[in-house]
Design a protein around this nucleic acid. Sequence first.
DNA 1: TAGAAAATGTGTATTACTACACGAATCTAA
DNA 2: TTAGATTCGTGTAGTAATACACATTTTCTA
Lengths: 188, 188
Amino acid sequence: MDNVDRRIIKSQKAIQSAFLTMLIEDGFDEISVKKITETADVGRKTFYLHYIDKYDLLDTIVNQRLEELAEICEQKKDKGFIEGTIIWFHYFEQHKAFFSALFASKSTVSFRDQLLGFIMDQLIKKIDKSDPEKDNEILLKFLSMATLGIVESYVLNQLKGSMELVATEVGELIMQTISLAGQKNSST
Amino acid sequence: MDNVDRRIIKSQKAIQSAFLTMLIEDGFDEISVKKITETADVGRKTFYLHYIDKYDLLDTIVNQRLEELAEICEQKKDKGFIEGTIIWFHYFEQHKAFFSALFASKSTVSFRDQLLGFIMDQLIKKIDKSDPEKDNEILLKFLSMATLGIVESYVLNQLKGSMELVATEVGELIMQTISLAGQKNSST
DNA sequence: TAGAAAATGTGTATTACTACACGAATCTAA
DNA sequence: TTAGATTCGTGTAGTAATACACATTTTCTA
């Protein structure tokens, strides 16, 4: 089945496009399934043929975004820490409105989990590279949460510096922390 | 049945929109049903659910346009000859690319018939107003063909004067011809 | 806080659209 | 002219989307 029925593609496209517009313009909490389907010019039932509810729709879209980002990271994985972090922040910069809307809402808990999971996935590769033996879950969680916090602040425009500055500092902090943990580990 | 199935509306909209784009860009003769459905992102079969062939589609669209124009004329019917004619030409001015493409093709014969019929319908009202007794079919056909010829030349940019100038002259010519015919008629 | 209004999620029967395949018609180039 | 490709128009069986109705839940507001 390489040929997906064009009706499915059209419906999902219309729904997701309507959702994204409303997400950025009105925020996640203001969105209702009814409004989405009205904007998408699609029967309400059609929505439920594809998604469980608006949270499920959000999950789907977030996953798409993160797969995109993972793909970008994969292509440039041998660039070193700083450059890698800049690539991250460049992506969030581009989709600022989107992520900003999600951080701004209190009902997008699963989004935070997804994003945290993604950051952990990415960081684990880097840590493994520096210190392949150990799987230090404390360190991993520590750094991931720290990064998540910075990403949130950045996307919500709560940080002063430029994207490059923020990314560079975060990259350095992560790098230092890992190497510190590595020393401590090798000394015991 | 006031609620038309939204799928029908969507399909027709997509097909007509694709057709119009291709009509203006490539001309009527270059258009194939296959290309239309590809551009419209619709199954080829769907086209045939709504239209017999591309000529039928064209007929439909032309009729829509002419109904539009008839509506405009109806709203401003008490404006006198000159103003009325200017309204006509204003409409053709706005849809120049569309009508130009149709006049340029040799396989759009029915379009000419439709337009001629439309012009006759509109003129018959005016003539009736001046001379209600007579139904002079010669005069009607004569004037309609003349007008059709001018419209064609105008749309194809073969006339020098501005829209207002052309419309005014045509309006005067029609008016004079009718009144001449009226005199001749009343003298017998 | 009660009661109205709106949104939700689901079931059902119907319909428009789909992919695909086919022979016929039309176009193209050797 | 002939062979090859392309488009045409139609048939078929399957599926996505539809309108509509319903009970339930949530949200609003008086």
